[in-house]
Design a protein around this nucleic acid. Sequence first.
DNA 1: CCAAAAGTGTTTTAGTTACACCCATGG
DNA 2: CCATGGGTGTAACTAAAACACTTTTGG
Lengths: 241, 241
Amino acid sequence: MDEAAFLESYDPAAFERPSVAVDLILMSVVDGAPAVLLTRRDQHPFQGAWALPGGFVGIGESLDDAAHRLLAEKAHMADAYVEQLYTFGAVDRDPRMRIISVAYFALIPACAFAAALKAAPELALARLTVPWQGETGGPVEARLAEGEPLALAFDHGDMLGVAMLRLRGKLDYSGIAFALLPERFTLRALQDVYEAILDTRLNKPAFRRRMLDRGWLAPTGERETGASFRPAELYRYQPPR
Amino acid sequence: MDEAAFLESYDPAAFERPSVAVDLILMSVVDGAPAVLLTRRDQHPFQGAWALPGGFVGIGESLDDAAHRLLAEKAHMADAYVEQLYTFGAVDRDPRMRIISVAYFALIPACAFAAALKAAPELALARLTVPWQGETGGPVEARLAEGEPLALAFDHGDMLGVAMLRLRGKLDYSGIAFALLPERFTLRALQDVYEAILDTRLNKPAFRRRMLDRGWLAPTGERETGASFRPAELYRYQPPR
DNA sequence: CCAAAAGTGTTTTAGTTACACCCATGG
DNA sequence: CCATGGGTGTAACTAAAACACTTTTGG
């Protein structure tokens, strides 16, 4: 019996259905390191552990709509680069009941990140440390400042791992780096984002040329102000074609 | 209210929940073109259109388990390279009721593909044509032989598009090409897989060297037989490290 | 010996890296 | 005029592409 035939004979009330949730990975690059917004759980299970903000998907709401709604509800942000990451469906991922969770990440410029932290006092900023290299994958560690890694609730450590893997993978063939920067930015700021996400040092002249040769950057003619040295040109992201 | 607090106060019976299904993209490369297995719908909606095999996720079954169970049930295959692709959650993607579908692809060598076709008579082989280039994405066309593209049910054309995009993206930094080949294969067969998926012609010497230099290929010492020309060396995939 | 495809060596090219240097600004 | 980081030019290196060539089989 294929899906079609199965659906025809399917009684919606006959089988128990899982709940479906969306969890949000609100990411930015702050002070040269990837960062994420977490909330502290005050109830069991995982009482005292840190969790990603999330919520259930409404029966008349698409997954993407749920992600954007939660972005507004939890982080009070109207717009951001939002992308579906992966769906976590282990049976026992929540000890209370069957919940399938679709993880989304939202990439947020550092300035908007700070604003979200102010607007949503239950959110805390955690810096991420990636204990693996390349395409290995695996969970990631989160710290409030320096010190011990936080205990993360559910499979949220794995979600953060998938987010970092995706971010690294897409960094230099897509424009996601620009979603982490304000509208106008310097080449140095762009390089800082790359170095934070990839956790490497990059050669400055090579990086400049690579970025400028791609043709995604439009000089604004404006300069950065406030530094006691040569002011840097401000660029704007101009998506290809 | 964060997810934690919400869950605590959540009454499982209070909200209507969506059904969750898994759809399987059973892919191979046959006669120099990507191919997929489809079933013809004999009921409304989308009567007469072609659909991916799929089924509902059991309440006590993980998503990955459901994908593997469906692989066995629909294609009578015990093992294959299976990977979660994307979750489709538009409200009206099925006109009858709310179904969220997690798309998985399974990569299958051409020989096993032919066996699956024999074992499951309701499945038909469709060749895929990708009407876009690079990282654009979008739906894909499927044809039974030459002729008009098939009408695809639901959002299954989009699912095939995501599958081709993922396949192209991962082709030359991961070992997925080898999942489409038998255990022992020639470099020409490997190149054919690359050319079919990328829809380009590749330079033979450059391709050879690139593959051999990566160190993922172990020569078996055996030779292909049956051709009326110089027999090619058979290689085996040796995953890195 | 011929056709056909496997397999190799050499040159060219393009893209990236490394490094040295000059430039512009505030103090 | 000095410290600091922005910005540029040039050479070295590496990886891929193109092309011509040799090798090995069945008939």
